[in-house]
Simulated assay, not measured.
Amino acid sequence: MVGESSQAKASRRKLRLGMVGGGQGAFIGAVHRLAARMDDRYELVAGAFSSTAEKSKASGAELGLPEARCYGSYAEMAQREARLKEGIDVVAIVTPNHVHVPAALEFVRRGIHVICDKPLTVGLREGKRLADALAKQPDVVFVLTHNYTGYPMVRQARQMVADGLLGKIRLVQAEYAQDWLTTKLEDSGQKQAAWRTDPKQSGPVGAVGDIGTHAMNLGAFISGLTLSELAADLTSFVEGRVLDDNAHVMLRFEGGAKGMLWASQVAPGNENRLVVRVYGEKGGLSWSQEDPNYLQFAPYGEPPRLITRGGAGSGPVAGRVTRVPPGHPEGYLEGFANIYTDAAELISAKIEGRAPDEGATLVPGIRQGLEGVKFCEAVVESSRKNGAWVKAAV
């Protein structure tokens, strides 16, 4: 990471990482492992990679792990690793949504740090169980991988809002559009489609939980605002699909700002079009995940300016999470790695009894997780009430 001395790199040890989920055929597991390796802060040493011991051991063998550290369940893994002299420091939970909290609780209660994929869980009551457990273990770090908050230009945008360059915020527009579920892909046996469209695994929402939570989190992260109310219209356009594949949501924030959010997985021509626009009394910002190294800043009454990652106008908060010179693209994996590296800084600071680097404290945690789950529940409630305004604050 930029700004870290060679002496600091030499003095630290790699954190011992375990993984729950992410076995053979799981896309996101490989992403988490790549992110963990990018800045050399972790070593994968154990895992419960699948729901059966046989599949878990096969996945672990492919990753070069000893059979004794490949477990048949996350409960077994938590119990045994907690007793080992050099057991895991931290676990990455990369399962379908319904497993997140039960797995996290097993490790949190044993003092093991947790990095968890989003959304936090399938219901607010369950999320609060985890929040209560974390309150009883104040030395345990919990990080939620809303990975888009790790992009340099996203952090640049957040800092510009915080510095008052946009003035009082009036509008927040967020959208995340995909097309991969335009047909009933889940009927083909495709693993990623199957669990995301199954309410037993995904919870009460489909596109909203999978990608809408990213859009909502990013809008709040950049603007610094807290969502208070929403009005939603959920649709399952594909015949026979139980969960939503499209959502239109109107937003009201504390302090009077308004917004709109669109999340769709049935919008042909869109791959991963995550876009956030924030407008205030003095100017506006616009950022697109598919072109992530650029941030458009438009001061009112002046020509728009294009701020590039690592270029003129890009400040130290973005520089801290920038690896290569401007013009060399950085994207999804690097943003994900920034979350992992910030998590490592928080965990290492706990282990070493010191204050963490201030920039690392930007990573999402349990509060953002609860906000995401409440957002999902409020969207469902509003849509069932024909788009009525409902409370969305935790």
Results as ranks from 00 to 15, higher is better:
100 H>Q: 10
331 G>T: 02
243 L>I: 12
280 G>H: 14
148 Y>C: 00
83 R>Q: 15
92 A>S: 10
74 Y>E: 03
263 A>M: 04
392 A>H: 11
263 A>W: 03
124 L>M: 06
145 T>M: 00
48 A>G: 02
267 A>D: 05
101 V>F: 11
9 K>P: 01
36 A>N: 14
272 N>V: 00
145 T>E: 03
78 A>R: 01
342 D>Q: 08
48 A>S: 00
348 S>C: 08
356 P>G: 12
254 E>G: 11
354 R>A: 11
19 M>I: 12
15 L>A: 03
159 Q>L: 09
18 G>Q: 07
158 R>A: 11
253 F>N: 10
263 A>Q: 04
71 Y>D: 07
42 Y>I: 05
181 L>W: 14
6 S>Q: 11
33 R>H: 08
246 N>P: 07
264 S>N: 04
59 S>T: 07
192 Q>N: 04
164 G>D: 11
33 R>E: 12
37 R>S: 15
191 K>Y: 06
134 L>C: 05
225 L>G: 09
74 Y>G: 02
320 R>D: 08
302 E>R: 08
81 E>T: 14
297 F>L: 01
177 A>W: 07
248 H>S: 14
117 D>A: 13
16 R>C: 01
8 A>N: 11
208 V>C: 04
219 G>C: 12
61 A>K: 13
7 Q>G: 08
223 S>A: 09
110 R>Y: 14
257 A>Q: 03
277 R>E: 12
209 G>W: 04
216 M>N: 12
132 D>Q: 11
322 T>Q: 05
83 R>K: 15
131 A>D: 05
311 G>F: 02
259 G>N: 14
375 F>H: 09
346 L>Y: 10
120 L>G: 06
146 H>V: 04
316 P>N: 01
284 G>T: 01
124 L>Y: 06
340 Y>P: 10
129 R>Y: 01
162 A>E: 06
206 G>Y: 10
17 L>C: 06
302 E>S: 05
44 L>A: 02
252 R>A: 13
294 Y>C: 02
199 P>T: 07
143 V>H: 00
239 E>P: 02
62 E>M: 10
58 A>T: 02
122 V>D: 11
205 V>M: 12
389 W>I: 13
156 Q>E: 15
78 A>K: 00
338 N>K: 06
292 P>F: 03
196 R>W: 01
14 K>A: 03
198 D>R: 12
53 A>R: 03
169 I>R: 10
344 A>C: 06
55 K>E: 04
35 A>M: 07
159 Q>M: 10
316 P>T: 00
10 A>L: 02
304 P>F: 02
80 R>Q: 15
372 G>W: 12
278 V>H: 08
13 R>N: 01
95 T>N: 03
105 L>K: 04
359 G>R: 09
8 A>I: 08
285 L>F: 03
240 G>P: 00
249 V>W: 14
372 G>A: 14
90 V>N: 07
261 L>E: 13
366 I>W: 11
243 L>E: 08
109 R>Y: 09
328 H>E: 10
5 S>K: 12
368 Q>A: 15
6 S>M: 10
364 P>E: 09
64 G>C: 13
267 A>F: 04
218 L>W: 05
167 G>R: 15
336 F>G: 02
109 R>G: 14
